[in-house]
Each structure stands twice: as C-alpha cells, then as structure tokens.
Write a protein that binds this DNA or RNA. Structure first.
Lengths: 199, 199
DNA sequence: CGCCATTATGCAACTAGGTGCAAAACAGGG
DNA sequence: CCCTGTTTTGCACCTAGTTGCATAATGGCG
C-alpha cells in the first residue's frame, strides 16, 4: 500500500492537480514507484473521501482541473508510515527465472535479451548520472539534501549492479553456447540443486 | 506473467505435486519469484487445462496427491519465453519512498526501520553464502552450472548492495537527527527538486 | 474400527495494479 | 459563434497476487 503515501508525499512537496502529479511521477517519484494517471486520479478521490487531502475550492465538474492539498491528517499518516514496520518486499525478477529456465531448455535467444537489458540499464544509469550532476554538484556536497542524494544513489547503485552482473553473465552465456535443450526431455529429473537447491 | 513459467521450469527440473512445488518455491525458486500454495494450485489447473502439463494417471479427487509432468507444448512455451522480448520491470521500492517522505515530514522512526532492514538483508546474504559454499565450492568452479551460479550471484550482489547502501544511509540519518517535521506545514511548496527533480 | 493430526488440494472474496476508452472543459482559428 | 484539437478527469473492466477458510485423503494410535 504505497501509492497513496507516494501521492501524499508528492503533494506535501508541492500541491498539484492530478495531471501535474502524473508528470512528476513520470520524471521523478516514478523511478521507485511508477503509476498511471488513472491510478493517480482514483487514489486522489479516495484520499479526499478519507479526509487526508482536499481539493482547493472550485466548482467541481468532470474535466475541470482540481488542485489538491494535504490536510493535517494526511501529513500525520505519512509520518506514521515512515516509521511503520514494513518488511522489504521479496525480489521478483523474471530475468533470473528465465536464466534458470535456460539451464533446462537451453539458452537460445537469451544472449540477445541480456544485451538488450544491459543497454537499457546503461541508459537508466546515464539518466541518473545526469540528475546527480545537475542536482548534487560536488562543490555543495553534504548540504541539507543528504537524504535526497542517498535516494538517488540507490538508483545509481542498482543500475550499476545490474550492468556489472549482466556483463559477467553475458560473457558466460556467449561462451557456453548450448543453445539447444540442455538434455533430452524426460531426463530432466533431479538435476538442479543437490539438496541445497541453490538460486 | 511469470508464475506459470516459473512452475513449468520447476516441473521440468523435477515432476512434482503441488505441495512439493510449494516447498521448492519456499526454499529456492521463490527467492526471485515467490508464490503461495493457493496460487500454485490454481496455476497448475490452468496449465493442465491449457495442455502444457498433465497429471500422472490417478483417480482424481479432492485431497488426493497429484503428480504433474510437463508436456512438449509446455517445454516449447518455456523456450519461447526465455527468448521473448521483455523489458526489465520498473523498480518498486517503498523504503526509498519512505526516505523521500522523511525529507518532508521528518525522519522520526526511520533509523529503526533502516536498522531492521539492514539486519534482514544480512541474514539473507548469509543464507545465500551458505548455499554458495554448499552448491558451488571453489574446487569445481566453472563447471556445467555456471548459469546457476550467476543466478545465485545476483542474489548475493543485491543483498550486498542493500547492506552497503543501508549502512551509508543509516549513518547520515543518525547524524542528521531532524526527527520532527523538517519545516512547518504550509511552507513545503517548491522545495524538492530545483527543476531536475532528482530521486 | 474410530479418532485425530497432518498432508494435500482447492474455492471465494479481496486488493492493487494495468488497459482501453469516454467525456467534460478549455484554447485557438476561422 | 462554431468547430476542432488538447487538456484534464474519470469510469469500467481485466489480470495477478493475497488472505481466509473449507474439504478430502492419509497415517498413526488407542
């Protein structure tokens, strides 16, 4: 249940309309929690219904722009949520599943996918580096915005990790080259994980 | 849509019943794609209906154990999926959102959460290291199971990244200590992101 | 045999995110 | 003023994952 809190945070930073929020999600908050405009409008209505935000007084009708502002109850809810016990979400990474599948059905087409992902992660890293250069120049390091910088560093670090991992994995996949099925159908039993069941 | 393929992969590795699959998800596949037994049973029925797997001939009735096996169509589907164009899923990380929220409403309670997450990630790293020591001992490196090892290394790398990041971030959060709201309500406008809108 | 804990499968309802499309308001040109 | 394209909000439906609970079979024990 993070979307409502993401929206509250965005509105605390700056009261906005739904469409403005959508644009800010696309370019900033969405790096770590993406949302479509439909989701955002739906959630704005719920938040207003629940008394956490309110629309600035305007005769409300369908296509008319509505500017929202966070109410004290909303701010309190965000503060509560920041301190809340919340376990890290389990990793869900289809690419790793596909790698595992490739050990059984063969690696045909896998290298192409790895290369494509590598390119995408490099692109994302470059984007983050641009933001860092712009918003956190070395001269005024250790300012008020240490936390913001850490958030960005998480993005930088994750992309860097994937680039390194993909590079290493790709090298082995290209070297191995067992494109066909690793073994005939029917003999696949009991191959993976000799008790410990790794990765 | 990864669950059906995860199940197919698991069944290719070793034909199993629903409950066996559930246990293997808990201890191995689920590290990168978790699933409950209810999800697994539901998906097994769909996969059978669609002709990708079939249950070994047994008089079928409610609580009776059913062993499943992958059909050729199922294996082909997995091979197709391995090579399929599939963009990396966008990051969804509530902890980073909460950090961002903390820059607005204050960091009260945040350090505790960071410490808790740090402990959990250290635990998970230790688990992965145990598996690596057991399944990939240094003497028989570079064997047939290079790919499996890379999968595990992804887990190791991610946990390592989070541990480092949490350690650095925690240091700053504990140093800063602006536990209360960073600024009075109402003046929050236009603070975050001077155009570039970082992190 | 009768009882009970455990194994094993499964349904139903709910939550949250994703997709497609519609409709009201607004802005500008003719 | 009217038409048209764009902005802005929103509904309806769908898919996937989660939670709570139900029910059948099985294996041991008295």
């Amino acid at each position: 249940m993070s979307l409502p809190h993401a929206i509250l945070t965005a509105l605390l930073e700056k009261p906005s309309s739904g469409l403005e929020l959508t644009r800010r999600f696309d370019r900033s908050i969405g790096f770590f929690w993406s949302a479509t405009h439909q989701q955002i409008y739906r959630e704005l209505n719920r938040l207003e219904r629940d008394g956490l935000i309110h629309a600035l007084p305007q005769p409300p009708s369908r296509g008319r722009r509505k500017e929202y502002e966070v109410l004290p109850a909303g701010r309190a809810e965000v503060a509560r949520w920041v301190a809340e016990d919340q376990d890290p979400r389990p990793v869900r990474e289809p690419l790793l599943l596909r790698l595992r599948a490739a050990t059984v059905v063969g690696t045909a087409g896998l290298a192409t996918e790895l290369r494509r992902h590598l390119a995408l992660h490099r692109e994302q890293l470059a984007l983050y580096e641009g933001i860092e250069a712009h918003d956190f120049p070395p001269e005024r390091a250790a300012g008020e915005n240490r936390l913001q910088h850490h958030i960005l560093r998480a993005g930088l670090g994750l992309e860097t990790f994937w680039i390194e991992w993909l590079t290493a994995t790709l090298a082995d996949v290209e070297a191995g080259g067992s494109d066909g099925a690793a073994r005939g159908p029917g003999e696949a039993a009991g191959v993976q994980g000799s008790g410990g069941e790794a990765g």
